[in-house]
């Protein structure tokens, strides 16, 4: 049985349909990349997978529990097996990096403080921040913050690890390092990984399967090669980086032509 199965998920904000009857199965131990442009609904889908919002209709089953309908205690239990690294890292600024990671351990487990210290150190070592634990989040660089967020997501040894735009706002080298970290974590801990991104290189490097979102529905769900060789016009447009016609290129061109001509005349 798949670890997460989404059935006919419909989400509307103020009567505007954001997700239109999505159905997707994510298998245990695979890396699923939710790929799509801005406004395709991929972040909204993610917020529903981790149970931050309730959909208009449809269901999201995580380990067999429907998190759109279950009780608060059940939802809490499900959440403990999901680790989330947010786009903005979302570290608690008032706490040091160590305390950020120790927080769920202290409050959700009855481990001794010395064990917690050890576990925090291990999580930090995994993401390569072992000697930065005493610092506060605002003293870290963007890439370090993201890695610290990964360490916090790993704190309770989750079965499912979720990344929201891991490479957004990072330079290519740091972004590539983060991709490697995601691959390494998946190999080392056999986790199910869900990544939301719009970055193609990163998606093709880490994914087992890719779900391509466009305007609230899936264009295609398949392996990297299936997506790469797809003939669907929107997927081709996305992969080949063809600009959309939002900017009304004709009108812009005409404007510039007129402008250049008027300049020539005055000269």
């Amino acid at each position: 049985m798949s670890i997460i199965s989404i059935r006919d998920l419909v989400v509307e904000y103020d009567g505007r349909r954001v997700l239109d009857g999505l159905t997707l199965d994510i298998e245990q131990g695979e890396t699923m990349v939710l790929l799509g442009g801005s406004g395709s609904g991929k972040s909204t889908l993610l917020r529903h997978i981790i149970g931050l919002e309730r959909p208009r209709s449809g269901s999201v089953l995580v380990k067999g529990i429907d998190i759109t309908r279950c009780s608060q205690p059940e939802l809490k239990r499900v959440r403990r097996c999901i680790g989330v690294a947010f786009q903005s890292a979302a570290l608690f600024n008032s706490l040091s990096v160590e305390d950020n990671i120790a927080l769920p351990l202290r409050e959700h487990t009855s481990l001794a403080p010395s064990i917690i210290d050890l576990m925090v150190w291990m999580k930090l070592a995994v993401v390569g921040l072992a000697e930065f634990g005493k610092l506060h989040p605002q003293e870290l660089s963007g890439g370090m913050k993201k890695r610290a967020a990964v360490a916090r997501a790993l704190a309770l040894d989750p079965e499912i690890l979720v990344f929201d735009e891991p490479s957004a706002g990072l330079d290519p080298i740091v972004a590539a390092e983060l991709d490697e970290l995601i691959r390494l974590l998946k190999q080392a801990f056999q986790m199910t990984v869900i990544v939301v991104t719009h970055e193609l290189p990163s998606a093709f490097r880490i994914a087992d399967r890719i779900a391509m979102l466009y305007k609230g529905s899936f264009l295609a769900v398949g392996t990297k090669d299936q997506i790469r060789s797809s003939e669907h016009p929107h997927i081709r447009q996305f992969i080949d980086r063809v600009p959309g016609n939002i900017a009304q290129t004709r009108a812009v061109e005409a404007y510039f032509e007129e402008y250049v001509q008027s300049q020539e005349v005055t000269r």
């Binding site: 149970g51 809490k76 409050e107």
Partner: peptide, 13 residues
């Protein structure tokens, strides 16, 4: 704004 409240909720707080 910084998603810390969301982070709290997904960490089961």
């Amino acid at each position: 704004v910084t998603e810390e409240v969301d982070a709290l909720r997904v960490m089961a707080f």
